[in-house]
Simulated scan of single mutants.
Amino acid sequence: MKNLTLEERDQLIRSIGAAVADGSLDLGGAVKRLRLEVTGLKQATFARMCKISMRALNHLEHGDGNPTLATLEAVFKPFGLRIGLVRIEPIDLRSVVTKTELDDFGFDYPDART
């Protein structure tokens, strides 16, 4: 691992975040790149630092399993990143189905979703 300046490290973190946002990099690939390119840590050390299991980190980096939000937050937090919603493309808001339209179709949904 090359010693990065603070500015280079910040730019690398931002570029990895942008790659995830634009869909060119998945979350597992982002975690692996951040771990290797920014910290240079081995999986075991990074997992301990994030307070997650080595198995959870391994599965996450390989795109296996279904990581919890807590796991994702734990691995991204050291880099100043959070999990959030990003609009991936402009949408036609007329195509968004509303509760009223669902009622019109006789859609039966749990009370908690009303």
Rank of each mutant, 00 (worst) to 15 (best):
P78N: 08
E61T: 09
V75R: 09
K51F: 10
T114F: 05
S95A: 11
R87V: 07
R113D: 03
L85I: 15
C50V: 13
K99Y: 09
E101S: 02
G63C: 10
T39S: 13
P110G: 05
I52K: 10
S24G: 02
A30Q: 03
F107H: 09
G106Q: 05
L85H: 11
I83D: 09
E37I: 00
R9V: 00
T114P: 01
I13H: 06
G80P: 05
D111I: 01
A56I: 08
L69R: 12
S15C: 02
A30V: 03
F46V: 07
L72S: 11
M49V: 03
S15G: 01
A21P: 00
S15E: 13
S95E: 06
A21L: 04
N58D: 12
I91Q: 11
G106K: 09
V31L: 00
F105P: 00
I88V: 11
D26I: 02
G28V: 04
M1K: 15
F79Q: 05
S95G: 00
T68I: 06
L41W: 14
G29N: 02
Q11G: 01
L93T: 15
R48V: 10
M1A: 12
V97N: 00
L12G: 04
M49I: 01
E7I: 04
K99R: 13
I91A: 08
R33P: 00
L12H: 06
M1T: 14
L4N: 14
L34D: 07
D111L: 01
E61H: 09
V38W: 03
A112I: 05
S95H: 04
N66Y: 12
F79L: 02
